[in-house]
Write a protein that binds this DNA or RNA. Structure first.
Length: 658
DNA sequence: GGTTAGGCTTGG
């Protein structure tokens, strides 16, 4: 069945076959039974028809749909990808436009392979065209508000405003501040707008409710104001919201769908609004102030600059009561070395940025004072925009005076020059070009990076170590009972307590007797890693990823690198005196008598590792019930953000096999 | 039934 067009959104509802139940995008899961369901949603993006090499050259098209149900619009996962195959792809490409509302049924639900990257929806819909049902309602017929009885709203051009009147106006935003707390009881939005009359009018909006403030992403966005009061201020006309006020905003991009944004459940929106928005877009595109775009990518940022940055949040950490660190990237490489702000891994929320740090892709943004209110609620993965971000050269701690200074980013306190930040919805038109840049980094995303950034920094093979001479403070109290492990080294040393090991200086090789308090990762399949011996990148292996090559991160001339399977476990050891975190890395295969590459393909070998771990640390066991382990431990130092850091690694030790 | 802000940088 080809794609069918209908005239009105209500006609779509009439097309719903009686046996089908309308489902919200939000509630779709991989286990949803699709045969009785249909979705109605707005098309926010249509990709090109492409030929899919993996599927015998069949044509396919990706479209992005957004929830239309107003009750669901604030929920999570309101947007979803739909893949059309075969003739349906071509049909859809010819029949549907961005902004149209579509009704889909008889789709299949698959896991979305791009979810980690686009954060849209864990599932995607697939339609192969055989019996599928696709209805399209063009956006020229608005789906909001009364469609038949168009109420008459009069919009006053900005050069015709008279003082002390209540008016409706349309304008293009030339300046804006994100809502900020006023000294009174409300949040305040401050903007300046203009129209074809070229008169600029200041506008203040006061409301206690943040969600009622207009959502403005950039200069050039278009805003409609209803019931605003005019008043003279410093010889110019200005506008202030008054009883019954409302605002609706639109993206300013020419030829993008005219999609109204407002928190109001009911609002008027008709053909004339679409025309007005299109005319304002056309006019503004030729104005000099619109090309004065402050949006800059990391690749072109210069020291000292104030600029707007569209980016994605990778990780965050509270620094103190007046400062939050946001680690972000925009997929472009900065020309200046970027400052890395060191944070304890347990204070960091979000993914490890170590691989991106190494490629000079991670910008560390320090967000201060009044901006904390917004920054606090941001979740890693969110797309966001900083306004009036300040790029500053800074010396890293411990950095020598003759070394290159690093670029840091500060969102200073206050709202001067529109300083602020806000999250962007994943389908925002402001993000479309940005997302295509991120696509180029898909090779980074195909793997989960190791969650704990501290592990990544400790890939070094421990250096040749000093063997500590005999020491009086051996662990006399330690159980002299059997050990579950055996040391394979030939050092003849007495044991040290963990407390003594911690006080020692590196490099050092020593023997300890300890129990395992806990270990990471708890899900043992996650201990299997892919390791690039060239650039020292460690990647987690997802079960379905079979690729063992990657684009090497430090030596681009070497190109694609083969990665090796490795095992990596972090132990927390304990004896009577202290606890100690020690890695099992270089010695892991010998420790378990299992090769990592074999384990990658064998459930039996993975089970063997699990059995060993269950013996070392029986589930739900008390510390006393756990066996003692005789271990040889290497104490060594790594550079961690220009600081020396002492690490411990289990070496020369194997599990005893009966 | 109506204060707040009414753009205009810089510290950390």
């Amino acid at each position: 069945m080809p794609v069918q067009k209908v005239k009105d959104s209500s006609d779509l509802d009439a097309k719903v076959p009686s046996h089908l139940q309308r489902t919200s995008i939000t509630s779709l899961t991989i286990t949803s039974e699709p045969s009785h369901r249909c979705v109605k949603a707005r098309v926010v993006h249509i990709g090109p028809v492409i030929s899919c090499a993996q599927k015998d050259g069949i044509e396919m098209l990706r479209a992005e749909l957004k929830e239309e149900d107003p009750l669901q619009r604030t929920a999570e996962h309101t947007s979803i990808n739909v893949i059309f195959f075969g003739t349906l792809a071509k049909d859809f490409s010819q029949s549907a436009r961005q902004g149209d509302v579509v009704l889909l049924a008889d789709f299949t639900i698959k896991k979305s392979p791009s979810f980690l990257r686009d954060k849209l929806h864990p599932c995607q819909l697939e339609m192969d065209g055989k019996d599928d049902c696709v209805y399209v309602c063009p956006s020229a017929k608005p789906s909001h508000g009364p469609s038949s009885s168009e109420a008459k709203y009069t919009y006053v051009p900005l050069n015709n405003l008279k003082p002390k009147t209540v008016v409706n106006v349309y304008g293009v935003v030339t300046f804006f501040k994100q809502p900020f707390p006023s000294k009174g009881s409300d949040y305040c939005s401050t903007l300046k707008i203009t129209d074809q009359s070229d008169v600029k009018v200041g506008c203040n909006i006061f409301s206690k409710k943040l969600e009622d403030h207009p959502v403005i992403f950039r200069v050039g966005d278009i805003i409609r104001l209803h019931r605003f009061k005019t008043e003279m201020f410093r010889d110019s006309m200005s506008l202030l919201n008054t009883y019954g006020w409302s605002t609706v905003t639109f993206d300013g991009t020419i030829d993008s769908p005219v999609v109204p944004h407002t928190s109001r459940k009911l609002f008027h929106f008709g053909e004339s609004d679409i025309r007005t928005v299109q005319e304002l877009r056309q006019w503004a595109a030729n104005q000099s102030w619109i090309s004065n775009d402050l949006t800059v990518s990391l690749s072109s940022v210069k020291p000292g600059m104030y600029f707007d940055l569209t980016c994605q949040l990778l990780a965050k950490a509270v620094m103190d009561s007046r400062c939050i660190l946001l680690k972000v990237w925009d997929g472009t490489k900065c020309q200046h070395p970027l400052l890395n702000v060191a944070v304890a891994s347990d204070a960091l929320e979000g993914e490890s940025t170590v691989a991106k740090d190494r490629m000079n892709l991670t910008a560390n943004v320090l967000v201060y004072d009044n901006h904390l209110e917004v920054a606090r609620d941001l979740k890693p993965g969110t797309f966001l925009c900083f306004y009036n971000l300040h790029a500053l050269l800074q010396r890293a701690p411990d950095q020598l005076p003759d070394q290159l200074e690093h670029l840091s980013f500060h969102l200073h306190g206050g709202t001067s020059y529109g300083r602020g930040l806000r999250s962007l919805p994943a389908e925002s038109p402001a993000l479309q070009s940005f997302k295509s840049v991120l696509e180029k980094h898909v090779d980074l995303d195909e793997y989960d990076e190791v969650n704990d950034g501290t592990l990544l920094e400790i890939w070094y093979t421990p250096p040749e170590a000093v063997v500590l001479p005999n020491d009086d403070e051996t662990d006399a109290e330690a159980d002299t009972g059997p050990s579950y492990t055996v040391r394979t080294c030939e050092h003849n040393m007495r044991r040290l307590t963990l407390a003594r090991v911690k006080r020692s200086t590196s490099p050092l090789l020593c023997h300890v007797r300890a129990r395992v308090k806990k270990y990471n990762p708890q899900q043992l399949y996650q201990c299997l890693k892919l390791f690039c011996s060239n650039c020292k990148t460690i990647l987690s292996v997802k079960a379905r990823v079979k690729k063992t090559v990657h684009r090497c991160l430090c030596h681009t001339a070497l190109g694609v690198q083969l990665m090796q399977y490795r095992l990596l476990i972090q132990f927390e050891l304990e004896d009577q005196t202290d606890t100690l975190e020690a890695l099992l890395w270089e010695n892991a295969e010998r420790f378990f008598h299992v090769s990592a590459v074999d384990a990658s393909g064998s459930q039996d070998l993975q089970d063997k590792i699990q059995t060993i771990m269950d013996t070392i640390q029986p589930p739900d066991s008390s510390l006393e019930e756990r066996p003692w382990l005789d271990l040889c431990v290497s104490v060594y130092t790594v550079k961690d953000n220009d600081r020396n850091r002492v690490c411990y690694q289990i070496t020369n030790t194997e599990i005893k096999e009966e």
